[in-house]
Computed example of a mutant assay.
Amino acid sequence: MSATPPSAANHPALPAVEQAIRTRTGNAFRIAAAHPVGGGSIHTALRVEDRSGAACFVKLADAGSAAMFAAEVDGLAAIAASGSFRTPAVIACGTAGAHAFLVLEHLELRPLQSAADGVRFADALVRLHRDRGERFGWHRDNFIGRTPQPNTPHANWAHFFVEHRLRPQFALARAQGFDAELHRQGERLFDRVPALFLDYRPQESLLHGDLWHGNAALLADGTPVVFDPAVHRGDRESDLAMSELFGGFPSSFYAEYRLSWPLHEDYEQRKLLYSLYHMLNHLNLFGRAYQREALRLATRLNQELAQRRD
């Protein structure tokens, strides 16, 4: 077993994490090792083990992140209840002084690689999206990354997306001093978004909400797994658009999804809208490297929607 970095082994929240695991599982779990886990950009992630090798996955952050962890617990529960994907079981969630923690079941995961992997994952996503509600949004607000994501329920998806997705992201970008032209494009776009839904009425599907390849995997037996959700009810196309934004999914995934549940003919245009939301969020979280692409998407959408009206 490799040496544990002091920053992981000596984290002040680990005694509380250990006690929470013991209380929840009713066993004598004692943390013998804590190994940093890569891949996250928001929280400290650790694999903690006892002397027998039993392991848990732990997220640690400042106490202000407690609401973020609670929202993640809620989202994982919703996806698990849909009977679509496997999600890591929640072991504990709480605070310890200045720190918040989330303890999850540790799963041995592998990335999607083969055509068969893509088919399995698509079938699970169709099952998730077939889980329908009565209104768009969610029963609570949550987060996309560490950005607050308002989810006030609404009967109209275009209105919901403008008011609870685009406006907050554009406002945050303006407050951080990003390109004024980006803000002007946003102002033009708000009134034009409904035109994308004149001939298309999305269902209130249960969505993962942050479906990039880093939040998707398989167990060794091929069972599809998702985690780190930003759950809400919305247009299923938005999950697919996010999956395309950064790549990483086999082409068989898209072919199988479309075979099982064909997409509307205007998906490619609405994909720009959904990609814009996530690009704005990346701009607001990670900085100017995403500004040019956010501006490109907003400008192209405005140009195409203006042509529709002419």
Rank of each mutant, 00 (worst) to 15 (best):
C56E: 08
P153K: 01
A158Y: 15
L76Q: 11
L104N: 07
R188D: 11
R110C: 08
A45N: 11
A77K: 05
A124N: 04
E304K: 11
P111Q: 11
A13Q: 02
V73L: 04
Y277M: 00
L104D: 08
A54W: 11
L285A: 08
A8V: 02
L102W: 07
P6V: 11
E108M: 05
A81F: 06
P12V: 01
P224I: 10
E268S: 12
D131Y: 15
L182H: 02
P15Q: 00
D74Q: 15
A81S: 01
G287F: 03
A306D: 15
Y200K: 09
T223R: 13
A33Q: 14
D221F: 09
R146A: 08
S114V: 04
F197P: 13
A115I: 10
L104E: 15
P229I: 05
S205A: 14
A13I: 05
L245H: 03
H139P: 06
Q19P: 11
F161T: 00
V73R: 15
F85N: 09
P153F: 05
A34C: 10
E304A: 05
Q19L: 07
F227D: 12
L46H: 06
W157T: 07
H106C: 12
V225L: 15
F170P: 04
L305G: 02
Q203G: 12
A294P: 04
E237V: 05
